[in-house]
Design a protein around this nucleic acid. Structure first.
Lengths: 200, 200
DNA sequence: GATGATTTTTAACTGTCGGTACAAAAATGT
DNA sequence: ACATTTTTGTACCGACAGTTAAAAATCATC
């Protein structure tokens, strides 16, 4: 066993609260005091457990990724569905999240992408976000490559462009959700967006 | 004429510089000191000329609107073009702006929309942005209503949903531009997005 | 050239920012 | 019981946030 006094808070628990706050208010919009009072710990505990604001932010993003982010992609790899159905499920999954009343509105990664280029986002966080967005695009490209192999019905549209299209839609859904667009409206939008992915 | 000492800076000039900074770094990401040094004026001059940070921000948004924002809509009202061509020109116009190397990346209104809901954006600014987004949607709705009257080719897709679709795309283009997507890529995305607006 | 209106400058104010020093408290190993 | 290790609470640091008071500077007008 490790020696020394024991931490009296659950690390994952307070990290989730930090994620919620960053998600809601962004990097600069969230202060250390905001964080410590939401996490219900003192500053030295925060710094000891998570390093500093920059590192805590990065950990919050990673935590978001496998608690809310990566899940959506699973809809792309369920068998027995058409390409259109898979993409629909993928986008609906995202639209459902960005309008969830129990979560900050929007998609954390997309919102942080909107903060990019600005002068105040730490280098490491910028890099992390860019890597995530790149990875998402690569996954979508792979998806469309496989689908084309199977159905041969999307010719004329390259996997690269289709991937860019879907990721642009994702970004749009995130901001639309933040702007208060309802799930029903987003669902209708998704239906329009994928109607030309018809196989026939 | 007005009596008293004359202002030794051009109000529109320094407002443009303030707009650029807010555009690049957002509301919380921009400090009064950042502003005064970019505008090359002292703080009391700023407060005398523009009120306070909140009011300066609102004026920057309005300035953006008629210097970079409202222009795009003109593409919707040029005669002699198909619905698809008009929408293409509209979206290309936006994509060109959000990738312009001489401007902060992204669309100022969309980026501020991403900041909404957070706790730090002033009430008046939130209200202003929401009004702008509503107005954009209404304009698009009107556009599609007119187009349907003319061509009767978009039935099955209501003007409301089409408007939501286009504005979602706008948001997406803004964030994609901020993420560094090149104009050529965005152009290809636009082509995919509007391919089902075919009149045939 | 004095008067009054307006802007500029300098300097300060209060509050909060991200981050830390230090010692008391609580756990372990010997 | 005692030394060691780790976490906790308090109190503080210098820097900067947004905003303003006071006085000097500049203008049109009497």
């Amino acid at each position: 066993m490790t020696v020394g006094r024991k931490r009296r808070f659950d690390k994952e628990d307070v990290l989730r609260k930090a994620m919620m706050l960053f998600w809601r208010n962004g990097y600069t919009g969230t202060s250390i005091s905001d964080l410590t009072s939401a996490m219900n710990i003192n500053k030295p505990s925060l710094y000891l457990a998570f390093g500093n604001k920059e590192q805590l932010f990065n950990q919050a993003i990673k935590f978001y990724l496998h608690e809310h982010g990566q899940y959506h992609a699973s809809h792309l790899f369920l068998g027995g569905l058409t390409t259109k159905e898979k993409i629909r499920n993928y986008l609906i999954s995202i639209a459902t999240m960005v309008t969830d009343h129990d979560l900050p509105k929007g998609c954390f990664v997309s919102l942080t992408t909107a903060e990019l280029v600005g002068d105040y986002i730490p280098e490491s966080s910028s890099h992390l976000i860019e890597t995530i967005n790149q990875q998402t695009k690569i996954s979508l490209e792979e998806f469309f490559k496989n689908e084309q192999k199977d159905s041969l019905k999307l010719k004329g549209l390259s996997p690269e462009v289709l991937a860019s299209y879907i990721i642009t839609l994702q970004f749009g859904l995130a901001i639309a959700g933040r702007n208060g667009m309802a799930l029903a409206e987003l669902t209708a939008v998704i239906e329009v967006s994928i109607s030309h992915l018809n196989l026939g």
